[in-house]
Write a protein that binds this DNA or RNA. Sequence first.
DNA 1: TGAACATATGAACAATTATTCATATGTTGT
DNA 2: ACAACATATGAATAATTGTTCATATGTTCA
Lengths: 110, 110
Amino acid sequence: MAHEDHQDIVKEIKKNMPGADTLFELADFFKVFGDSTRIRIMCALFERELSVCCIADIVGMEQSTVSHQLRVLRQENLVKVRREGKQSYYSLEDEHIQKIFEMGLEHIME
Amino acid sequence: MAHEDHQDIVKEIKKNMPGADTLFELADFFKVFGDSTRIRIMCALFERELSVCCIADIVGMEQSTVSHQLRVLRQENLVKVRREGKQSYYSLEDEHIQKIFEMGLEHIME
DNA sequence: TGAACATATGAACAATTATTCATATGTTGT
DNA sequence: ACAACATATGAATAATTGTTCATATGTTCA
């Protein structure tokens, strides 16, 4: 309880904010972008769909690690899979991802 | 080493990807969005600049917690501070933030 | 059916991170 | 200079998360 209108401001801002559940979900969504392995995986997928072993080679990590991270990306609907014989081919779910990516790049390049 | 053109694909993708250092930086940037307390703080700041104690009240957490998180936001150049008397007023550094936020919302609302 | 390969998953470990408490620093008004 | 308040920071703790190893599942071809 600081200045006079403290409570008014708090009430006003709270009223206009999205619900806490929405913001939790949003944080979970962005959490996916907050890991360099996943960022690199997504970045690789900008060009074309890729098999798991290709991705592992590109990012230079264990196949197991990549598989785990691909699951995270799947769970947040950022990538989709397609089975073809022994391989699984992953690709990006939509274009939001690339746009968000580019905006982040713009920011850090400032 | 899977299918025939595995190595070609790996080499091609690697060539076109941003450097590892850039992608690490980008992941660090997005990491900031990946916490619900920070998301809520940023969201509150969309409307107007706010003092630390207002923010603490809005998000319903300790002043100390908010202060720590504001430091994280400052370090990634997402907010700026202005001292006025006893209070520190925080505001958003630029509009990228709100755009990224909105794109995230669009995605989870699909 | 069995061997060879690609991918997925569980458990364990290491590392990172968010929160809190206690306290320090900074500011104002007396 | 001191009291009262706002903010910042350090240390400790709890929780989350990324990676790896070992292994299971799924697929193809002989």
